[in-house]
Design a protein around this nucleic acid. Structure first.
Length: 579
DNA sequence: TGGCCTTTGAAGCTT
DNA sequence: AAGCTTCAAAGGCCA
C-alpha cells in the first residue's frame, strides 16, 4: 500500500485532478480563508467566484482568482522542486516579508526561538521579539531557548505558567527544517479522519513509520504539572491557554514531551525504524521517560469508580486494582478534529460574541464547523489524525476504554432516564434545553469578520463537491464520516429557527457567494449531503504536495507581527514540498 | 463544589 | 454490523 512506501513516495500516479485539488486547497488556505476574516470582502467574493468557476472547469488551479495582494506572486509551478520552494522561503524570510494571515489564529506557526534569546517563562511574547515565527501549517511549536537543556524534573515555575505553545524539534536545526521534513510525510492535505486513513491503524498496530512532522506537537499541560504545554494559542489567547493535559507528578526528563517526541520520532523516522521498536511505555510514560500532555495526574483527575478494565485483566483483588488504577495517570483522549477546531476558534468566537457560555459558543462553532470548506475541515482532520497518531505512539497500550465509564456516572444515569422519558414524551417535550437559550435570536455573535470567513470559506458547493478529486476514491470510512449538522435533530430545528438569520444574514452579506449561502442553508435545514462531508483525502497523494505551491512560510520579525499574522493566518497543514 | 449544557468525532460498548 | 454511549474542551450556570 502506498502508505508503506518510503516517505514522500506514498503515492503512485496521482491523478492530475488530485494535484489540482491540492492546489485548490492551498488556494483556499491562502485565499478565501485568509481574506475572509480580515481581508477585503469584495476581493474575497471575487476570489471565491473565480475559484468556483475554476472548479467547474476542472482546472482547479485557481491561479486566476488570486485576489490577494499579499499572495506570493510566484506561480506554484515554479516550486515544483522543493529546493526552489525552500529558496523562496529563505528569500522571503530574508526579505522580512510575510503574507497576510488567514483567519486561523492557531496552528499555522512554528515558533522558533532565536538562539540566545531569553525565554519568557510565562510564555508572553518577548518584548524583543525574540522568537522567530515560522509559519507552519501545524500546531504551534515553540521551543523556548534552552528548553531542551532543562531538566524537566525540576522545572522552573516558568514552565508551570508557560502559556506559550510549545513544541518543536529538539534538535537545533534550520528553521526550514520542519518544512523540509514535511516533505517526507505521508501527509495528505485532504486527509480523512484518522481512523479512515489507510496509512495507519493505531489499533491494529500497523502504523507506518511515524514522521516527526506528523506528531502533533501540542499537548498542553495542566497547571501544577511539572511541565506544561498549553494550547498553541495560549500565548496569545489566554482563554485558550488553559491546560488541556496535565502531567503526572512523576516528573519528566523533558519539559516538552512533544518536543522530545518529535526528536525521537525524527530519529525513528530518519532511520526508518518502526514505532514498534519503541519499548512500550509504562503507565503513560513515553519510553523515553517523557510524559505526554494527555496524561492527567490521578490527583487532578481521580475517578476510581470502576475496577480496572485494563486489557490484561488479572485476578488481582478489586482493592489492588483500584489502587493501581489510582496510581495510573489519566491519559486523556486525543482531540478530534472538531475539538481541535473549537480550541482554536473558541477565543475568536468569544471575542466576537457577547456570549461566554461554552454551550452557546459550541453551538456557534458547530455551525461554523459545518460551514467550513472541506479543505479547511480536512486540515483539522489531519491534525486530529496526527494527534491520535502521536497519542498512540506515546501510549501504545492506551485505549479509549481506559477512560470509558470513568466520568460522570450521574450524567449517564441521567441521560438514561432522559432517554426513557423521551421515548414516552413527544418531541416537543424534550427535556433538553432548547438551543435558543444559548443562541439568542438577536444574533449576539453576528460578527462579520469570522462569520463571513466561515461562510465564505465554505466551498461546499455542488461544483466544489463535484470537483473533489478524491470523491471517487472515498473510502467507506470516509463516507461514514459524520455528515450531520448536529446529532440532535430537534436542536437543529431550533437552531434553524433561531439562527437561520444569523447564518443566512452572513450568506446574504456575501451575495456573490451564493454557494456559501446555499451551503449554510443546506447545513442547517437539509439532510446531510455530500457537500458537508469531510474531504475524502486518502487518495490525495503526496505527489500532489510536490506540485503544491509553497505555503507562505515567513519569518515574523516581532511579536506584533506575529500577532498580526496570527490573527489572520489560516490553519493549513500543507506546507511541505516534497524533497 | 461539581455536574450540566452544547458541539463533533473517535472509539468502546451493546444488541 | 449497526446503533448507542462515553469522552474529549470550554466556561457560565445552577443546585
Amino acid at each position: 500500500m502506498p502508505q508503506l512506501e518510503p516517505a514522500g513516495g506514498d503515492d503512485l500516479g496521482a491523478p492530475d485532478e488530485l494535484i489540482a485539488f491540492q492546489d485548490e486547497g492551498e488556494e483556499q488556505d491562502k485565499g478565501a480563508g485568509r481574506g475572509s476574516a480580515h481581508g477585503d470582502l469584495d476581493e474575497l467574493k471575487s476570489s471565491l467566484v473565480s475559484e468556483t468557476e475554476n472548479r467547474g472547469t476542472g482546472t482547479g488551479s485557481g491561479s486566476g482568482s488570486d485576489s490577494e495582494a499579499e499572495r506570493p506572486p510566484q506561480p506554484r509551478e515554479s516550486f515544483q522542486k522543493p529546493r526552489d520552494y525552500l529558496a523562496e522561503v529563505v528569500r522571503r524570510q530574508q526579505d522580512g516579508g510575510f503574507f497576510k494571515g488567514p483567519p486561523y489564529p492557531g496552528y499555522p506557526f512554528l515558533m522558533l526561538p532565536e538562539l540566545g534569546s531569553p525565554y519568557l517563562a510565562n510564555g508572553a511574547l518577548s518584548p524583543g521579539g525574540a522568537r522567530t515565527y515560522l509559519q507552519m501549517k501545524w500546531p504551534l511549536l515553540d521551543v523556548p531557548a534552552g528548553a531542551t537543556l532543562k531538566d524537566s524534573r525540576s522545572p522552573s515555575p516558568a514552565h508551570l505558567s508557560n502559556k506559550v505553545p510549545v513544541v518543536q524539534h529538539a534538535h537545533h536545526m534550520h528553521p526550514l527544517t520542519p518544512l523540509i521534513t514535511y516533505s517526507n510525510d505521508h501527509f495528505s492535505p485532504g486527509s480523512p479522519p484518522g481512523h479512515l486513513s489507510p496509512e495507519i491503524d493505531p489499533k491494529t498496530g500497523i502504523p507506518r513509520p511515524p514522521h516527526p512532522s506528523e506528531l502533533p506537537p501540542y499537548y498542553p499541560l495542566s497547571p501544577g504539572a511539572v511541565g506544561q504545554i498549553p494550547h498553541p494559542l495560549g500565548w496569545l489567547v489566554p482563554q485558550q491557554g488553559q491546560p488541556v493535559y496535565s502531567i503526572p507528578p512523576g516528573g519528566f526528563r523533558h519539559p516538552y514531551p512533544a518536543l522530545a517526541m518529535n526528536a525521537s520520532m525524527s530519529s525513528l523516522m530518519s532511520s526508518r525504524f518502526s514505532p514498534h521498536m519503541v519499548p512500550p511505555p509504562t503507565h503513560g510514560l513515553h519510553p523515553s521517560g517523557i510524559p505526554h500532555p494527555t496524561i492527567v495526574s490521578p490527583i487532578v483527575k481521580q475517578e476510581p469508580t470502576q475496577p480496572s478494565v485494563s486489557p490484561g485483566g488479572n485476578s488481582k483483588s478489586p482493592v489492588t486494582v483500584k489502587k493501581e488504577e489510582e496510581k495510573k495517570p489519566h491519559i486523556k483522549k486525543p482531540l478530534n478534529a472538531f475539538m481541535l477546531y473549537m480550541k482554536e476558534m473558541r477565543a475568536k468566537v468569544v471575542a466576537e460574541c457577547t456570549l461566554k457560555e461554552s454551550a452557546a459558543i459550541n453551538q456557534i462553532l458547530g455551525r461554523r464547523w459545518h460551514s467550513l470548506s472541506r479543505e479547511e475541515q480536512a486540515k483539522y482532520y489531519e491534525l486530529a489524525r496526527k494527534e491520535r497518531q502521536l497519542h498512540s505512539q506515546l501510549y501504545p497500550t492506551w485505549s479509549a476504554r481506559d477512560n470509558y465509564g470513568k466520568k460522570k456516572k450521574r450524567k449517564r444515569e441521567k441521560l438514561a432516564q432522559q432517554q426513557s422519558h423521551d421515548t414516552e414524551s413527544s418531541l416537543a417535550s424534550k427535556s433538553k434545553k432548547p438551543c435558543v437559550q444559548y443562541l439568542p435570536a438577536e444574533k449576539p455573535c453576528d460578527s462579520p469578520a469570522s462569520s463571513h470567513g466561515s461562510m465564505l470559506d465554505s466551498p461546499a458547493t455542488p461544483s466544489a463537491a463535484l470537483a473533489s478529486p478524491a470523491a471517487p476514491a472515498a473510502t467507506h470510512s470516509e463516507q461514514a464520516q459524520p455528515l450531520s449538522l448536529t446529532t440532535k435533530p430537534e436542536a437543529r430545528a431550533q437552531l434553524t429557527m433561531h439562527s437561520a438569520a444569523f447564518l443566512s444574514g452572513k450568506a446574504a452579506s456575501s451575495s456573490s457567494s451564493s454557494s456559501s449561502s446555499s451551503s449554510s442553508s443546506s447545513s442547517l435545514g437539509s439532510p446531510p449531503s455530500l457537500l458537508s462531508r469531510p474531504i475524502p483525502f486518502t487518495s490525495v497523494p503526496s505527489t500532489a504536495l510536490l506540485s503544491s505551491p509553497p505555503s507562505f512560510a515567513a519569518a515574523i520579525p516581532s511579536p506584533q507581527a506575529a500577532l498580526a499574522v496570527l490573527q489572520t493566518q489560516p490553519l493549513s497543514l500543507v506546507t511541505k514540498p516534497a524533497d
